[in-house]
Amino acid sequence: MRNPSSGFLIFISMQFKKDNLLTLLLLFPGLVFFIGLFIYPLCITFTNSLTISNHTGYSLQNYIDLLSSAKYWNVIGITFVLAISTTILSVLIALPLALILRKRVKGHTFIRLLILLPLTVLALISALGLLIVWDKNGWVNLFLTQVLPFIDEPLKINYTLYGLILFYAWLYSPHTILMTLSSIEGIDRNVEQAATITGAKPFEVFRYITLPLSMSGIRSGSVMTFLLAFGAFNVPLIAGGNYRPLTVAIYTEAGVFNNWPKASALAIIMGILEIIFILIYFKLTKKRSAA
């Protein structure tokens, strides 16, 4: 004898399985993309990094060569210095700018438009323009030497580390600025007013109310800036001069010396370094926001 409730249960479980199947079917194209265009190329890069050109078999020789050479440690160091300095500089630009813009001063819509420019214009065009502006005979040096009375010698900015950091900040700070702005404008002004009324000085309001409340935006924006600066390729390629970050070193290895295994090994090292850095960063900032 079959009782009706068990029939109902079977019906439900069948429904559930059919539902699962549909979900899997919907996820299928995404899965194919993820494996075909990301995981598989990543594996190819990795296996490629274990070979040596003109030899058969696998070995860790490329990694040993790279990590025992001072030249490549220098490259890794420059990449980190560039990425971290750019992130710090972009936060230093983003915070005052966001605090000013949320007051809706005159002309704030124009400035908001300007923030978007570096995001939509080809990075190479901007880099070309920056190279001309900051040149030895460029407008900035003309201003410094002809308008300001206390500087006589034109500054050398192009193809120096400081210049590169400046260019990176031009390109990638909008990410920090936008995220900081959106989180600062999301703060309930009543909270800050309450702090002011109960006797907090403007700096204390900023330090204990505004900054903690906008921390999530600053954090995600600066992570984005760091990631982009770490993986930046086109700008150092034309404006880097002697300062070659990892990306340019990889491209030179593959494109100029045609040594793909070595380039692949360097690329894998870059990926691992970035993941490690992101994990450390999240741990640090989580602790701070919890405290």
């Binding site: 598989y40 190819i44 490629n48 993986g231 990889i250 990926g271 993941i275």
Partner: peptide, 17 residues
């Protein structure tokens, strides 16, 4: 993940494939 990891890491493999 493809957005977090530098593009060159997998672009070398993509080029090979």
């Amino acid at each position: 993940l493809p957005r977090m990891i530098p593009e060159l890491t997998y672009a070398l493999g993509t080029a090979k494939i």
